[in-house]
């Protein structure tokens, strides 16, 4: 028996919007730790890892570990029927081939339940070791989204270069080139507006903008984003979900031939 009640149901709506472009079908794993997902895009170039910790739910009952295969487009269709202030409860019985999403309006005057068929999905879990990154950039998530969007109108790939002075995003295309430098800026009124660079050594890596733009669908989940870079690893783009967990995206770099 599984029963997860989330008063801030809008979080779940935002999570689905953040991952459904990248991944079509995925297994949601439920354990005592929390509600999680790890899935790669169809080309095995990008991976999304979601964690919503059990403590973040108002009620969390998960009698045994459960893996529920879902089409994310269909989950999104169901969750779009929930109001933005609704309380969302996810329910499933052991051995059942369906999951139920229950939506309650804040004053309890409207209760809806949507039952969705589960599917069998062969999931490929990657072991992702903890790593020391050469550079970690924290910046406003809206700024990062704007940069990715702007650069993708010029080129297909971005070179992200980190030095002590700042982080540079560069692209080149048929019509010309573009460089955007964000300097370290800790002295802002609000911490979420800061750009902070933790650097062990300078690093420069190339990535496909198409994927980074897809990651920025998570922008509504967090005011800030962190970008962790090492020359021999996929980049990690992390959006923290307040008090609950995170959505992390991993993207394999492009390498000069």
């Amino acid at each position: 028996m599984l029963e997860l009640r989330l008063v801030q149901g809008s979080l779940l709506k935002k999570v689905l919007e953040a991952i459904k472009e990248l991944v079509t079908d995925a297994n949601f794993d439920c354990s005592a730790t929390g509600f999680s997902l790890q899935a790669m895009d169809s080309s095995h170039v990008a991976l999304v890892a979601l964690l919503l910790r059990s403590e973040g739910f108002e009620h969390y009952r998960c009698d045994r570990n459960l893996s529920m295969g879902m089409n994310l487009g269909n989950v999104s269709k169901m969750l779009r029927c929930a109001g933005s202030d609704d309380i969302i409860t996810i329910k499933a019985d052991d051995g059942s081939d369906t999951v139920t999403f229950m939506f309650e309006s804040p004053n309890q005057d409207k209760i809806a339940d949507f039952e969705m068929k589960l599917m069998d999905i062969d999931s490929e879990h990657l072991g992702i070791p903890d790593a020391e990154y050469q550079a970690i950039v924290r910046m406003p998530s809206g700024e990062f989204a704007r940069i990715c969007k702007d650069l993708s109108s010029i080129g297909d790939t971005v070179i992200i270069s980190v030095t002590k002075e700042g982080v540079k995003f560069s692209t080149a295309g048929d019509i010309g080139t573009a460089n955007i430098v964000c300097r370290q800026n800790k002295t802002v009124d609000k911490p979420e507006e800061a750009t902070v660079i933790e650097m062990q050594e300078p690093v420069s890596l190339t990535f496909a903008l198409r994927y980074l733009n897809s990651f920025t669908k998570a922008t509504p989940l967090s005011e800030t984003v962190s970008i962790s870079l090492s020359s021999d690893l996929p980049v990690v783009v992390e959006y923290k979900i307040a008090d609950m967990g995170y959505v992390r995206y991993y993207l394999a770099p492009k390498i000069e031939e």
């Binding site: 790669m40 080309s43 095995h44 170039v45 990008a46 991976l47 490929e124 879990h125 990657l126 072991g127 992702i128 070791p129 790939t157 190339t206 496909a208 021999d232 690893l233 996929p234 991993y250 394999a252 770099p253 492009k254 390498i255 000069e256 031939e257």
Partner: peptide, 14 residues
């Protein structure tokens, strides 16, 4: 020219 690498070049199946 740059070549797109895949995640399997970096991570192993768990």
């Amino acid at each position: 020219l740059s070549r797109q690498t895949g995640l399997y070049s970096f991570f192993l199946l768990a």
